[in-house]
Design a protein around this nucleic acid. Structure first.
Lengths: 185, 185
DNA sequence: TTTGTACTTGTACGGACGTACTAGTTCGAG
DNA sequence: CTCGAACTAGTACGTCCGTACAAGTACAAA
């Protein structure tokens, strides 16, 4: 249980369980009482530290975004470590896809963004970040196409028991990264 | 207003507004009272025709699935009409992306599937159907990679004001459809 | 016409929710 | 020590929800 006199710790604990809960069960699943139960704080604490449920949800979403940003930074380092080669990217992404919670966090941001325009910047970060990372090794268009493909793969992985195999990933990444815009017109 | 003695019409009216409501505001937004208001039927009618709210939601989702299946059929015809050429596919898909409600319906199925395993078959239909359609003009792997890319494009379109331009679509589709698996190992 | 079944309609109950609020507690500044 | 601000904790209010239900209505079959 969170220590009785540790305001920052309490706030942090509530944000953490709120983020976990939203990742696991979706944006709408979050209630004051659920957070209070999971963080083992009285109901009143959830309203004392956050102006409203919407404030709590948004603040927790920012925690998710911060974690996602950190992960993007790690991906960037790994991509540069393999010099953006298709083999390296495919292997790296295969590992990435095995972390189901990570993928669910991404989908949380997406679905929040679809129905709440003010949250779209959060949802746009992953594709934007991935596009920028890949831009070091291909044209902007090729990098974006690859990022969009990988996003499709994330969604596919969330909806199927068997993930896309690494060989298919390598094929698609090779095809997308190695092309430039068509010359005609 | 729905005629007072027209059971099938009433049921249909409720399912239609329920589908619309879920597409617009998400799975969780649906309530008996909201459906009653939109379909202009008394509250009791919503519980008379559906065993529970979950039954109403699932039945409405099946309406969405049926519409999506019909649209997939139209896409199949259009793809075959252009013989699966990248130019044709890009043009076709650009049109497809302009129908925002259609894309939101797809995202509804996806998000429902992510958090409710029993609904995943519904969410898997689009990619599965698109893969089968494209398989007539490429290897299965290339077709699936293209379908995944297009799924990423759908998500991107839902989250950005400016859609992916047709030239980029054509480039990516050309790259993905025109490749086979790498020969190494 | 009678009757039973399908359908209609409004109301009500119990529960969960967001939020407000009050009384009590802690602790650093003066 | 004093005291006021920050924090704690429990409770309660009003609202909305899913669902149950009773009383009424229409209509097809007898």
């Amino acid at each position: 249980m969170t220590s009785r006199r540790d305001p920052e710790g309490r706030r942090r604990a509530m944000l953490d369980v709120a983020a976990q809960e939203m990742i696991a069960n979706g944006w709408e699943a979050l209630t004051h009482r659920r957070v209070a139960e999971l963080a083992q704080v009285p109901l009143g604490a959830t309203t004392y530290y956050f102006d409203s449920l919407d404030d709590l949800r948004t603040s927790a979403l920012e925690v998710v975004v911060a974690q996602a940003d950190e992960e993007i930074r790690q991906v960037a380092a790994a991509v540069h470590a393999c010099a953006g080669s298709a083999e390296g990217l495919a292997a790296l992404f295969t590992t990435y896809l095995s972390d189901h919670a990570r993928l669910q966090a991404e989908s949380l941001l997406y679905f929040a963004g679809v129905h709440q325009p003010e949250l779209r910047p959060y949802a746009q970060r992953w594709v934007k970040g991935m596009t920028e990372i890949l831009s070091a090794y291909a044209t902007h268009e090729a990098a974006q196409a690859t990022a969009l493909y990988l996003d499709g793969v994330i969604l596919y992985t969330l909806l199927h028991d068997r993930p896309v195999d690494e060989r298919s990933l390598r094929m698609a990444i090779t095809a997308l990264m190695g092309t430039s815009l068509p010359e005609d017109q």
